[in-house]
Design a protein around this nucleic acid. Structure first.
Lengths: 104, 104
DNA sequence: GCTGAACATAACTAAAGGCGTATATAAGCG
DNA sequence: CGCTTATATACGCCTTTAGTTATGTTCAGC
């Protein structure tokens, strides 16, 4: 109902970024992901996966009693879209630096 | 104990993204930024600016008793660098969609 | 020096977020 | 059917965060 988490909040959490990194390599079951985050308990990982699901960054499909998680391709695009207009700032900056080096 | 906010946390806050948007247009004084966020008080905006400063997303220069804030070009690049490896996912996805359309 | 403007910080409060333990749900297996 | 494995949810705890009001601090102009 409430708690409408957005994608920026979702990726602000380091463990969740870690999970996304793992899923970028390949699809994994919830159990594999739990094993990959040894500092967290199973419920903690499950909750992080829920957040990622709710903002559309991952999707799940059942496989017997397992649940296979997969990266959802277009989720991060919203962040990328947000960054796009800013990109020119550091491009300009780099260009200026290069210019400066060439002129000395 | 210590805050050590990172850039992902910094941009997770909607008001801070709003501030970055304003600074992308042009440099502004703290006062102008306060006026641009009428739902917040002056101290609240000041603290958001502090967070943005601490993660290197903006910089300040004094101008008499004013403080002029400016976007710092390379701050968001860290997020962009993080996103880069994921970018292929939605590109592949889009390509697959296009392929699908062409083949029907 | 005094006063007001511009901005930052302090102190507090309320809400949210992340964690772990305990418990539920659901599927596989004998 | 029980029993075990895989995963999700409930609940309480604790820490962090964002907000407010109140107070500092610094500079400009008289």
């Amino acid at each position: 109902m409430f708690s409408a988490v957005d994608v920026f909040e979702a990726v602000a959490e380091p463990n969740r970024r870690h999970l996304l990194g793992l899923l970028a390599e390949r699809d994994r079951t919830a159990g594999e992901l739990v094993d990959s985050l040894p500092t967290l308990t199973q419920p903690a990982v499950s909750r992080h996966l829920r957040v990622l699901r709710e903002v559309g960054l991952v999707e799940v499909r059942p496989d017997g009693q397992r649940r296979i998680y997969a990266l959802k391709p277009d989720g991060l695009q919203r962040i990328d879209d947000w960054i796009t207009p800013y990109r020119r700032f550091w491009r300009d900056h780099l260009a200026a630096l290069q210019q400066h080096l060439e002129n000395r």
